Amino acid sequence: MAAQEKMQQVLDWAVAEVGIPGIVVEARDGDRTWFGTAGVADVKTGGRRRPGEYVHTGSSGKTFTAAAILALEAEGKLSLDDTVNKWLPGVLDVNGYDGNKITIRHLLSNTSGLFSTGLAPELAQRYATRAEFVKHRGDEVTTEDLLKLAVSQPPVAEPGERFEYSNGGFYIAGAIIEKVTGNSYAEEVERRVIRPLGLTNTFVRPSQDAGYPDPHPRAYSNLFYKDGTDVAAVTAENWESMIEEPGLAPLDVTEFNTSWSWSAGNVVSTTGDMIRFVNAMASGNLLPSAQHREMWTTVSTPDYWMPHARYGLGIIEFDKEAMGGRTLRGLGGSFWGHFFFAAGTLDGKHAFAMHANTEWKSWDVAFRLMEAEFGFTIGV
């Protein structure tokens, strides 16, 4: 069976069995290109999904942040081993953190010891239930707000001790980019990543924006806690048990101010542009060799975060043995109304990108697409 046919079967399964309203995949293998879709872009009109849609890429934006930092290092403007206090004195010296011990490398590898920012009660309370989401969906937050949020809970580990996925580390990295350059985070990502790679349909979403350019799909979410959930009791291990029961109609969350994502993942793009981006990151077509090696110096991750994966600097490398003996590299992200994932080979010639207009439901979607496109069965 051809890869395209296998991919289409996965898309159809994702809509029929996983509960995704609409999903798209774009794949490139040398000169071969393919675009597939299943489901709808709009559940009210029944409009189909189509090529060239602008979508939110979620935490894929972390890779843009890491690439911008590494480009600055290549120019001698900073070092990954610089402490946070060198650039942002005192920002981390609260609530048990030590800005003289946490480095930029720690921030980008999620080994800083910062707690999982997405579980902060201040953030969870704002979007925890459907009613609260509707009330706060237009809220705009500032960089100062985000830096405070990053240290609003005590450390979960010593710097370098272990992996803990934390948006807060990337907020701090974004602020360091601005301090070092004197320019905005968005300007530096545009200058050092987007423009050099010719990503003409990619941008860091302005903090005041809550919509998307056309064409774009509607976004739908069931990512809400049950009524009465104590958000302070939610952890990285138990959050799934707190989610509202299945069967409720999804909420249309298309218009949503995502300024709280900022340098932790607020990039809007297309599947075509993101294939070019993941290929460049996987193969080293953007960064000098020294910085490319640093990006791909990886740490282990817990299975509850993502199975078969190690984490570099803002990016993922999959276990070679589990991936049929080949090295695959990727990026992705999920939040209200969006699930984005892309993966490619080391030579930068074979990759795919997918987007679902609802949040992550299961890693099976991404893994089945990898199996179909790259022609292997994932090992246990």
Rank of each mutant, 00 (worst) to 15 (best):
E5T: 14
P302R: 05
E17A: 14
P288V: 12
H355Y: 06
Y171K: 04
G272I: 03
K6L: 12
H355R: 01
R218Y: 05
A124V: 09
L147Y: 07
Y220H: 06
L123R: 12
E371S: 14
V193E: 05
G265L: 11
S334T: 14
Y171H: 07
E245F: 05
S152I: 14
N201H: 15
H216V: 06
D227F: 00
R32N: 08
Y127E: 06
M306W: 15
E161T: 09
V193H: 08
G284H: 00
E73N: 05
R32C: 02
L369A: 05
G272N: 07
A74H: 09
T103V: 12
V231M: 09
S362H: 11
F340G: 04
P89K: 06
S261I: 08
S79T: 10
N100H: 10
L123P: 05
E164W: 03
E255M: 15
G314P: 09
K135C: 06
D12Y: 01
K62Y: 08
G247P: 15
P155T: 13
F277G: 01
T298M: 11
S221M: 09
A366S: 04
D98V: 14
P215W: 00
I177W: 08
A309L: 11
M323H: 11
H136L: 06
Q9A: 13
V299C: 11
Q208A: 11
V10H: 04
I378Q: 07
A282V: 06
D209F: 10
E190C: 00
G52R: 02
A175E: 15
A128I: 01
L199R: 06
L108Q: 09
V15R: 00
F335T: 14
D273K: 01
G118Q: 15
A353F: 01
I102W: 10
A232P: 03
T37S: 13
N266V: 04
F367V: 02
L119H: 12
L223E: 13
I102K: 13
N238G: 08
R48I: 07
T301A: 08
A290Y: 07
A290Q: 12
V94C: 09
T358G: 10
F256Y: 12
R32P: 03
F256E: 01
S60L: 10
I23F: 00
Y171M: 02
